[in-house]
Design a protein around this nucleic acid. Structure first.
Lengths: 185, 185
DNA sequence: CTCATCTGAGACAGCGATGTCTCAAACCGT
DNA sequence: ACGGTTTGAGACATCGCTGTCTCAGATGAG
């Protein structure tokens, strides 16, 4: 049982129930409580690491779509494609990483808050470029568009949890709802 | 210090930090811990009451717009107006009641889960009627439209918290984003 | 003023979670 | 098979929170 595997299992368990005790987490990971403590000195350490892991993934997704390059290009088609890819990737992640979305368990750690803000800013830069290129509307702030995307990810997670939407459809739903909204036309 | 006032203060405090202890809550309400216990026998009782309170408000909002009547009318204009009113009302509530949105502190109480489902169903019925009337698009499920609305409320809450959006603009932002999405046109 | 009631501070035991430790068993490469 | 390492089970002290209780002071109606 790798350190990385433990982290993944812990994340899964905390995603399932954010109030899980370390004993719960250890059981879920199939290891003993002592072993868990050997890898992560304290609960706080474990949570911090999970937070970092989530941010790593977020950063990776931004890197994957070359967000800065695409944004600088000003190419509407490329920007829209990047937007769609990014949202689809986030939806995929929302499953495993979702609880760090809704749970503010690292609130207060200035380090994490700062990094979150930097990542959000990178993402928002893409939305701003999309506005510039006429892909996204310009009458609302780019940061609001960022929050709206986040909100739809929460919705996606919830819809899956409630069994209202087949998993394979969620990405497309999020994208089309994000772009076109709910209005008929 | 009324029971209702205590409840409101507790909700505010838990909204601020969902992990507040009863001592925190009592302090925030400006009362002693003993007094808090006199009104609410246990933490669980308090949380249940807050959950019920939130659901009461939700129900009230649905009643306020006459959701069943409007839905049955099939009148597109009336339906869209009700939709807007409802979203605006929810945004207003999201401030005080938001934490019961994201925090699953009553998860497991079948009673609450059931009532939440009933309320959600009432709301979704309006979305379905809106689809019927051509106000909302029919190519996604009404329940997804419900989750999407919820997601945008989470986004609104987050945007306010981050100071990215003036409070008075949030309702209109949610509505326009919900209906039109983020796409330029 | 007086008495009944309500309140806050504090003490207290109980509980679950955390973090440390030990030890025997399981597991590894050699 | 062997010796070093890792592991899980469990014991243990500690901590913070909860829920109960007491008591002295504040409050308020008469």
């Amino acid at each position: 049982m790798n350190r990385e595997e433990i982290l993944a299992a812990a994340q899964r368990q905390l995603n399932h129930d954010p109030r899980s005790s370390l004993a719960d987490i250890a059981t879920a990971a199939g290891i003993g409580r002592a072993t868990l403590h050997r890898h992560f000195a304290s609960r706080e350490t474990l949570l911090e690491e999970i937070g970092t892991r989530s941010q790593d993934r977020w950063e990776q997704r931004l890197d994957d779509v070359d967000v800065e390059v695409v944004a600088a290009s000003g190419d509407a088609a490329a920007i829209e494609a990047a937007l769609r890819d990014l949202l689809a990737a986030f939806v995929e992640d929302a499953d495993d990483f979702g609880f760090s979305l809704t749970d503010s368990f690292i609130a207060g750690e200035p380090e994490h808050v700062e990094r979150t803000e930097r990542l959000f800013a990178r993402e928002v830069a893409l939305y701003a470029a999309a506005q510039e290129a006429g892909v996204l509307r310009g009458d609302v702030s780019a940061r609001w568009l960022g929050h709206a995307a986040y909100g739809l990810l929460v919705a996606a997670r919830e819809a899956i949890r409630a069994g209202d939407v087949p998993r394979r459809d969620v990405a497309e739903l999020v994208i089309t709802t994000y772009l076109r909204g709910g209005q008929s036309r």
